[in-house]
Design a protein around this nucleic acid. Structure first.
Lengths: 129, 129, 129, 129
DNA sequence: GTGGTCTAGACCACC
DNA sequence: GTGGTCTAGACCACA
């Protein structure tokens, strides 16, 4: 948990929940930790987790069953990936491209740097094991 | 001016000033509008413009000559480009690459979309003229 | 069973019991399923069904014969209809009328839409058979 | 403010804001009270008002201008009416009609009661003056 | 036990 | 001054 400012804590938690759904740690139709449990886990106020969960409900990634808890929605993984892809293509890429034009960076440079990046990731994953 | 949330008004103004320096509209050693003038132009509180200017002074893109006004620093353009490039490579690209990995997007797709983007920009600029 | 928010599970169950009494499926003086049976049927905690039954006892639609089970009260159907009608006329209609005034909807429009509704219901019932 | 339970306080406040926009008390592009002001007015915690305002932002009835306050959006009135009408026709009317069928209430009765209602409203408004 | 809501009070960035 | 966020702690209805 990053308690400084890049983005709100509740957002970071929501993102983490999505990660865990994507990774399969929390499968469809499965119950996820209660607001209070996760709050303790994360060292955070329950209200904050509640807010995260609510935002995930709004995005239809999880649902609430009264008095029982929150559950991962059927095709949450597909939905999350869909959302991320849309946001990436419609929001991030245009910003990226505009910056590239301003800076006179050619796409080839991006490709080249990406390859460097992939290799360094493989290396650092190798170190972990 | 976007008065809603993405980033602070003062940041947006600072960015615009940089744009105008880059475009050559405001050349090196030239005086830029006074805080009050720009505030009126932008429909914004003078304090806000003052803060923008101060951040630009901190980044050494402009300088204050007391009693006279703010002036573009000698090699402001180079400095601004430098800054943008550093931020882009060290901050934005890593985020970009991580997102690409998560979404399984190959760099070729980026290149392809960039070409589409460049064309559409050329077209819309043609329309303007 | 709607496990999400509109109204409590126990209320939904109580409503369903009333429906079955109204439809004649469960006649007066007849025994209705035990708390546990109904709980299994509905995929619900027995406590929840117990609470539904208790609310129906409070409204005098069913009664508990100790050690035997719950039974539909003599004139339950009349009583249920009575209750529904009272609630409708005293609680729902005023809200409805206030909304109509705010939105400038004339009662004629309601009548017209009601006719459409009745027809569509007849059609969909025809399809079922 | 109804501090009992029919609906949440923040909802009631949001509704009241809509009413005031509809009535013209708060015109388009106009600033509405700050979160803290309205909180004092209503005898309520600022967080609660903030939540109301946020829900109105989500519904695009008001917008936030950083550091200044909340403003009524251009065609908020039309939007609000639109929303209310949609909700009425798609959510409330079907419930109404189903209840009418269960209770064997004919639309003519609704019309008749509506006329009584309109008259009583006129009378009570006359008394106010 | 679950979540939903509200209060009180705090800190922050921003205008 | 503005709103945005977080914490602490409370109460409620519901399962």
């Amino acid at each position: 948990m990053e308690f400084s400012q890049p983005k709100g804590i509740y957002q970071q938690i929501a993102d983490q929940v999505c990660e865990r759904i994507l990774s399969g740690e929390w499968a469809a139709e499965e119950r996820i930790p209660s607001v209070r449990e996760l709050a303790v886990d994360m060292g955070v106020n329950p209200n904050t987790v509640a807010r995260s969960y609510q935002s995930l409900v709004d995005d239809m990634h999880i649902e609430n069953r009264r008095g029982i808890g929150y559950f991962v929605i059927q095709n949450a993984r597909e939905r999350i990936l869909e959302n991320m892809k849309n946001r990436f293509i419609n929001m991030e890429l245009p910003r990226l491209f505009r910056t590239m034009q301003k800076l006179g960076i050619k796409p080839e440079e991006i490709v080249q740097r990406y390859e460097q990046f992939s290799q360094s990731v493989q290396v650092s994953q190798g170190e972990k094991q």
